[in-house]
Write a protein that binds this DNA or RNA. Structure first.
Lengths: 354, 354
DNA sequence: GTGAAAGCGCTAACAA
DNA sequence: TTGTTAGCGCTTTCAC
């Protein structure tokens, strides 16, 4: 690789007739005990501009020990909600001058990615990590990163020593179930995928409780993976096997919106009407479920606020490791759209228009 | 920041009773002229494992001049198709031991991001860059990165000296238009956003030509931005203002699937039936348009193959800068779904079922 | 205000 | 097969 003629501090220093240290100080605008005269600063700045100087990040990192890179640690990458959150966090971190490296933790332990190509980072944003703080710290320790600042973010959170921004899906789920009950659903099921460790999920327990409190029987519809296709075929199978004389769910709360949209399609396949025959509520708040012929209700997570706070917490901790833990829990918002609207008559009309 | 006790090569060397250079060679498995005995190698490897050694990437980069990081350069980040492509490329590059830094070029010149926090990279994947190779090289030169290897990828490509993997949307667009014509559309319009420099876009010109060749009049429906919301409101306005006695488009080819799904929703709003009243074809092949009540036809881009080839080309160029340019053009695939199906009778039935 | 010297952790060259 | 030396480009410390 033809390494192109690198413009170093020294090169600028020579042309400016000063030492390379002076150039460094001038460029970095140090307000420490080192002061550079306005004249030299200008001269150096102009020269750097003119010569097209670009600092060597590796050299700087080597001596300062700071990379200005943050790892964004996630379980999976194939969900629109993840992408929305990821890009929000990227933007927030950029405001702090921090770049982002995406870390996809295959299974429960992301040791592989962290240990690999991914360059060193100054901190980690841990998104929707379901295994608790202890396990997280242990994993980090295994990687020799015990002291690496991190912030938890998302719907899994437990009180601990770490900074986190939680989202209280239990409260939201309760709301969603009550909503379904209120509009008249008598058999409310929960659609979830196996991979979601769903027995320890706040949605699962909150759903179970809420349904029981309403005097109904919980019913779990479990698909193998959290994909649209999988949810669709599951629904076709599950609902397709019902006879007319047997009761079937008339309200579905879905673990997330991707599942919900697969479920919706599955119901379409069977000619089951939403919301008249089955009402549907998803979770997350991804954009595309709003654009279905029958827009889906959802439990919208406060992604913007969550990211903003988490990035702020992390930035502050990087600046000052001895800060006391910052922990906050946000609430999702139940967005009621046509898929679970009580004004059934209205939709009866519309569905007959064609 | 309490810098934790770093495990360096030297530390391992001392414990192993060898020089740090030996350790370096043993760990990197050098097959060059430097050979390490199997015994020392084992000892060093075990020790490194035991002490939890993690190489200092910055130091390595400083001396080798290689970061093993690739910049993924894109125009915008808010499109599901982009996300799909991005993650595909990430995976492909990881196979080559390369990490990825996402570079979002705000306007036409991404100088800002490249010059900023983003660490140095060994190469660039340029995705759907509409401004041509010359402009690209110029931009790189401005940044002092004239010799940085890059590969172009996507639907904008022109013959030149650079490696690229193109997608021939002109051919695909022709197919799409002909398809719409074949199923009986007599007034086929093109829905596009202003930001897409659409007059220089292959889709635009191919659409225009194909429509004219069919003896029809081109009609451009132009929205301000490429968002679902914008497309939806545009359609509501555009079609809402038509009287029954005036002809209106009965076939729409959309610049991309995001626009298509907004258009679809807008048509729903107006009670216009798809495909009976208006047939719809999008472009890209994002997943969620397959899950609408009326799945959308689309011009599916060969994202997997495109990414695989582009990453391969880039990797090879990084290894060997003097390779002759590798250029290839792939074809999109027209996927016909219900939104433009000719079996209108069938859908007539379905739409009356409720 | 500025400069000189040292060194971050690693690898490339050469010598042994 | 292994060790020695040098240096990547930058910042930090301390002396001037």
């Amino acid at each position: 690789m033809p390494r192109q003629p690198t413009i170093t501090l020294k090169a600028i220093a020579e042309r400016a007739g000063v030492s390379s240290m002076t150039v460094s100080a001038a460029l970095s605008g140090k307000s420490g005990n080192v002061l550079i005269s306005e004249a030299t600063r200008r001269r150096v700045l102009d020269l750097a501009q003119e010569m097209g100087y670009r600092p060597n990040v590796a050299a700087r990192t080597l001596v300062t020990g700071r990379t200005n890179q943050i790892a964004f640690w996630t379980q999976g990458v194939s969900n629109p909600y993840f992408n929305a959150v990821y890009h929000l966090a990227r933007r927030d971190l950029r405001h702090y001058g921090l770049g982002v490296t995406l870390l996809e933790a295959g299974g429960r332990s992301p040791s592989q990615p962290l240990a690999n190509v991914d360059s060193a980072v100054d901190g980690v944003v841990v998104f929707d990590w379901p295994n608790g703080e202890a396990a997280l710290r242990e994993t980090l320790a295994t990687l020799g990163l015990a002291h690496l600042p991190f912030v938890g973010m998302g719907c899994y959170y437990v009180a601990g020593e770490a900074d986190y921004v939680g989202v209280d899906l239990a409260a939201g789920t309760r709301q969603a179930v009550e909503h379904l009950y209120t509009i008249g659903c008598q058999r409310i099921a929960y659609v979830v995928d196996q991979g979601s460790h769903y027995e320890t999920d706040a949605r699962w327990s909150a759903y179970t409780l809420a349904v029981q409190r309403a005097g109904l029987e919980p019913e779990y519809i479990v698909t193998s993976v959290a994909s649209r296709a999988s949810a669709r075929s599951l629904v076709t199978e599950y609902f397709g096997s019902y006879r007319d004389d047997k009761p079937r769910p008339d309200g579905l709360f879905c673990h997330n919106d991707v599942i919900a949209s697969g479920v919706y399609r599955g119901l379409c396949d069977l000619g089951i009407r939403v919301p008249q025959d089955v009402a549907l509520v998803g979770c997350d708040g991804i954009e595309d479920i709003e654009y279905l012929e029958r827009p889906l209700s959802t439990l919208r997570q406060p992604a913007e606020q969550m990211c903003a706070l988490a990035c702020q917490f992390l930035y502050q901790r990087i600046q000052n490791a001895s800060l006391s833990p910052q922990q906050i829990v946000l609430c999702p918002e139940l967005i009621v759209r046509e898929s679970s609207s009580r004004e059934l008559d209205k939709y009866q009309d519309i569905s007959q228009r064609s």
